[in-house]
Design a protein around this nucleic acid. Structure first.
Lengths: 129, 129
DNA sequence: CTTATTGTCTTATGTACCTAATACAATATC
DNA sequence: GATATTGTATTAGGTACATAAGACAATAAG
């Protein structure tokens, strides 16, 4: 798991996002035990309290659950995980479109710019094709 | 100008973003005088100090400049404004792609989801077409 | 039973952000 | 020249966030 933080948002909200992404992307498979709060905190380079706060909020969503002393586990409900994935994707798509429209781009331009960037990102560096 | 704030980022950074968008989208045309700090602050519902901070940072980018007592003006440099627009768009496109790849979507899926959302957003509510 | 590990909670400290309330110098306006 | 408006700066107080340090109860592991 790779942990990265920007300084334009609270760390604990970024932790929530990144763990959630880790779950829906399969880095933390359904039913699997998560590292302990203290381990995760050390790994991410944050205070245990901050990690605890993030994980506690993730439990509200039902994506993880904790067992008193055994540890904390990813939900076995794969349908819930799929729903979370679709929800995240939907939010990204919508806010991306909104942002681009606000900048004054037309719908066709948005699609065109996306395609262009994807093709560039795919292009072989050595040949340029 | 419409002012909206989320609570997951400092207000002053959101102000910077929104004024910048206002400039590149033409809501604040090149060379035009901006409302005073106090006016903008009232309009946005924030403290004058906070608006002042945002505008001061916008001056670093060169998008606006202030004249001691006459007020604050949008740059006349339309090339700079165009560059800012392209820069914002590029950032949005890249971070959108990154986020979707992180979720586990393939490139074709990303384009497909975008097209789908744009078509749905365009669809006439009365006819569904 | 003993021990270590777990999630959880508490208290304290420092920092960044936001607001509030002024104050000041410069200058456009009258 | 007098006045009002402008950008700018300062001081103070409140809140949220992050860290530090420690404590507790529950229970898995020995």
């Amino acid at each position: 798991m790779r942990w990265e933080f920007s300084n334009d948002a609270p760390i604990y909200t970024q932790l929530i996002q990144q763990v959630k992404v880790g779950i829906v992307a399969g880095i933390f498979p359904p039913g699997e035990r998560l590292p302990s709060v203290r381990e995760l905190a050390t790994e991410a380079g944050v205070n245990p309290n901050t990690m605890q706060r993030a994980l506690a909020e993730l439990e509200r969503d039902g994506l993880v659950y904790s067992q008193r002393t055994a540890g904390r586990f990813v939900t076995e409900d794969e349908i819930m995980i799929q729903a979370a994935k679709r929800g995240l994707a939907q939010r990204h798509v919508k806010s991306f479109i909104e942002a681009m429209l606000r900048l004054g781009f037309r719908q066709e331009e948005i699609v065109a710019l996306l395609k262009q960037e994807i093709e560039e990102g795919t292009r072989d560096v050595s040949t340029g094709m």
